[in-house]
């Protein structure tokens, strides 16, 4: 392909002796277009053909707005909890040696491996008024299952590994001499952590937060069991899509989906920006 041309200056690709560029890239692009891009484009095209006024009225429907508000609000709260506890878990796993550390490290990935529906029914059973945890909280007047708080609990479960697995490798790369230097210059441990270590970890924490948040916004399986799904109160946006589909109200389903897609692509773009920026500034992402 391009390596046979003698053009100087701008080149689409660098010459290589390795064969199979055309085959592998061709297959990759065809499969990508067929499985991902055409279906997504179909959704965007169908939504666009609704016309702007129709789309605007569907998007500003109060049930839609409430579902979006609940999805983004609970995902934000859960990502925040995960950012705090995820950093503590990562720190403990990277810095301390204790019996069962390997086991704990492996267990962090459980939410990646456990099907969301299983997590959903397990969490609901635990936090229901008669469940193992719910039974302790009910006398205190705290209701978790079938309220927005339940959604946050499910999203904490789903999002935890994103923060831990993003922050952990960056923590492992921290040069201990930086901390020793801070200590020599008179910083106490508290100052070293909050003014030397955490600023360097901030891009990783932010990336983990954004990944957990993005996953939480779209999460469906683990949430619908525990949420109670009361419209305007604990009905998440993905569920509203399913409900509109079951009503054969395709335009409304597509409108909600398109709003969510646009917001998640903006999120993806921001995550990439953070990573590019942190690679430049700190040499890792």
């Amino acid at each position: 392909m391009a390596n046979t041309s003698f053009a100087t200056g701008w080149k689409w690709r660098q010459a290589s002796v390795i064969p199979g560029f055309g085959l592998s890239l061709g297959y990759t692009l065809s499969y990508l277009v067929l499985i991902i891009l055409i279906p997504l484009a179909g959704l965007v095209w169908h939504t666009a053909s609704l016309g702007l006024p129709e789309l605007a009225s569907l998007a500003t429907d109060s049930r839609t707005l409430n579902a979006l508000r609940i999805s983004f609000g609970t995902a934000m709260a859960a990502a925040f909890v995960n950012a705090v506890f995820g950093v503590i878990v990562a720190w403990v796993l990277v810095r301390y040696d204790f019996p069962g550390r390997r086991f704990v490290d492996a267990a962090v990935d459980l939410p990646f491996a456990l099907p969301t529906a299983v997590a959903g029914i397990a969490l609901t059973t635990l936090y229901a008024p008669k469940g193992w945890i719910g039974a302790w909280l009910t006398p205190l007047g705290i209701k978790i299952a079938y309220t927005p708080l339940g959604i946050v609990i499910a999203l904490i479960f789903i999002g935890l590994p994103f923060v831990v697995r993003t922050v952990q490798p960056v923590m492992e790369e921290i040069d201990r001499q930086v901390e020793e230097a801070a200590a020599t210059l008179g910083a106490n441990r508290f100052q070293t952590i909050f003014r030397v270590l955490l600023p360097g970890l901030f891009p990783a924490i932010l990336t983990g937060f954004a990944l957990a948040f993005a996953r939480g916004v779209g999460e469906y399986g683990s949430v619908i069991f525990i949420a109670g799904n009361i419209p305007y109160v604990s009905e998440i946006a993905p569920l509203l899509i399913v409900i509109r589909l079951e009503e054969f109200n395709y335009p409304a389903a597509m409108a909600v989906a398109t709003i969510m897609l646009v917001i998640s692509f903006i999120m993806l773009f921001i995550i990439n920006l953070i990573q590019a920026w942190s690679r430049k500034r700190y040499g890792y992402a």
Partner: peptide, 9 residues
């Protein structure tokens, strides 16, 4: 970064 529900939709 696409919600599973949208992947089905």
């Amino acid at each position: 970064s696409v919600s599973p529900v949208i992947s089905g939709l």
